[in-house]
Design a protein around this nucleic acid. Structure first.
Lengths: 114, 114
DNA sequence: TGGCTATTTGGCTATATTGCCAAATACCAG
DNA sequence: CTGGTATTTGGCAATATAGCCAAATAGCCA
């Protein structure tokens, strides 16, 4: 693979990898509605605050969120709302998979019945 | 976080994680153009055939590709072309990041020049 | 059958990721 | 300054991932 193309895929993979975790997906969706501080997200997700902080660092390094300190808290916002389109695409895949599974199940049932 | 919501994010994260690797992104793009067998992809990517095979297994388990044996080879195809929209979204993020970086650089230059 | 090609599987090592805890840091209110 | 809250950092253990090699499997052709 040519190096320039390779580099392009590495760059894209970095962004995608940053989204590839349930808690981080949750954060992205939550921030789409409104800005949130670490404490709020921590309570919603239900893991240690330091863990949430690290997830937010991952998202920030990928350029997906921004932070802003106000008073005693740090508020995070989504930097690219287009990210939600992204999640829409994933849902399409999931529903395709679900249909397939349903078809397979139906097929199996037909086989065993009788 | 409620369990149902949590499960939804776990399911989505699985799909996204399957895409979160440079070689797998390459494979997805390549399969968007046309079906390919393992050998072709192996040569294009330039890693061991067993590694490519494992990447394809990851993509297949996520429901992103399908395989079909014909003759001596196994051909892989993209199951959800919508995946390419997904990559378009990633490019949006990358260009947003690039603009930001450009702005920062400009700002720095302005600072040092004088 | 035997040899050949294509692909997958198992095993291994190196590296990366996740999550917790404890400690450090930053900021606000008295 | 002191105490309290919010967040990040460092360190550690458990687990997951990526890649290679060697071996197993599957199908073709002679």
């Amino acid at each position: 693979m040519k190096s320039a193309v390779r580099q392009q895929h590495v760059a894209r993979a970095k962004i995608i990898k940053a989204m590839a975790h349930p808690s981080r997906l949750f954060i992205i969706e939550e921030l789409h509605d409104k800005e949130r501080c670490v404490g709020e997200l921590t309570e919603m997700i239900g893991v240690d605050a330091s863990t949430v902080s690290k997830h937010l660092t991952v998202l920030k390094n990928a350029g997906l969120v921004m932070d802003e300190k106000r008073g005693n808290s740090i508020f995070y916002t989504l930097r690219c709302p287009c990210i939600m389109d992204f999640i829409g695409c994933v849902e399409d895949v999931l529903s395709t998979n679900a249909e397939e599974n349903a078809a397979v199940l139906k097929c199996l049932n037909r086989g065993t019945k009788k």
